[in-house]
Design a binder for these strands. Structure first.
Lengths: 124, 124
DNA sequence: ATAGATGTACTACAAATGTAGAAGGAGACT
DNA sequence: AGTCTCCTTCTACATTTGTAGTACATCTAT
């Protein structure tokens, strides 16, 4: 971890989320299906995948006419990197500001308790 | 809280951070000084302040030739809103994914402990 | 081989973002 | 009053992001 990954724009992140949820090898149709609610034009999706490839987040494997899309960045690494970014950039690196923000974020008491519990476990 | 605040682009957020750290009334020069390391052209800073005003994050008070800048969104509200966004958008709303991300984020053991402690306190 | 279906590559374009020069108004100094 | 400063408003422009149409290659079923 600690990969210093750039933040992806919203649309591209949505595509990555879809890729992360799918089983490889991933074809365009599968991504499309996963993002069905978005109702993106096929070409739009292809554009986003190409941009993700340009940014090094995805490898496009040509298989004749078809293409396969392979995530090169793991969801875990991305989330970790962005968490760091968030604490630094939004909370100015202040853990107390971060904690307050979480408490006021609208997360339920249960969710906050769960978070605390998980942090405790991982601390072991 | 719960104000559903849009995410600000990096440059604008930096300016907001400066505003939040300054005492009102805030003049351009003060912001400039606070952001000295950025070495922004004066006009660039003014553009960013204007955009923040357009987005409702700042009120520009004319005082003759000078202008004063008043943050209309509190740092706390912004941080809370963005925390929510982060958990939803990046972690897909999964608290466990969020917890893992934090553990792998590069935050030190001490910082994670502090976070846990603060969440506990606030839970009371 | 031919026509329709499919899939990708190119091109396009508006809006948002990052950054800044040019121009013009209002005080300050002489 | 004339000029120098300082400040802000306008305008500008490259890049990024969101979204999609058009053109062309390939497959598939006649």
């Amino acid at each position: 971890m600690e990969k210093e990954l750039r933040r992806l724009p919203d649309s591209e992140l949505e595509v990555m989320q879809a890729l992360w949820e799918l089983e490889e090898p991933i074809c365009r149709a599968a991504v499309e299906e996963k993002l069905a609610q978005r109702r993106l034009a096929v070409t739009t999706l292809l554009t986003l995948l190409t941009r993700l490839s340009d940014k090094g987040f995805v490898r496009i494997e040509k298989d004749g006419r078809r293409s396969r899309y392979v995530p090169l960045v793991s969801r875990k690494d991305y989330q970790a990197a962005q968490s760091r970014r968030f604490v630094q950039q939004v909370c100015g690196g202040s853990i107390s500001a971060f904690a307050s923000a979480l408490c006021d974020s609208g997360l339920s008491r249960e969710e906050l308790d769960e978070l605390r519990r998980l942090l405790e476990e991982d601390a072991l």
